[in-house]
């Protein structure tokens, strides 16, 4: 197994997510892991992050 990844910022909740194929050949997905990053998110910063998504 090998691994690749991305980052995403979320609030508490239950989310549906897709793993979409963009390019290349066949992939077999073992698992997807969400690990909280060490850097704490200030409340004011969180507002900015949410605005970036809109």
């Amino acid at each position: 197994m090998s691994a690749g990844g991305a980052q995403v910022c979320l609030e508490p909740g239950v989310y549906m997510f897709l793993i979409e194929h963009l390019s290349g050949d066949r992939a077999r997905v073992d698992y997807v892991e969400f690990v909280l990053m060490d850097t704490p998110v200030e409340r004011s910063t969180w507002g900015s992050i949410k605005n970036m998504y809109r």
Binding site: G4, G5, C9, E11, A27, V29, E33, F34, V35
Partner: peptide, 16 residues
């Protein structure tokens, strides 16, 4: 299910 507000490293374990 996310329990804590924050930014997450998302890792996909895979084979190709």
């Amino acid at each position: 299910m996310v329990e804590e507000t924050g930014c997450y490293d998302v890792t996909v374990a895979y084979q190709s």
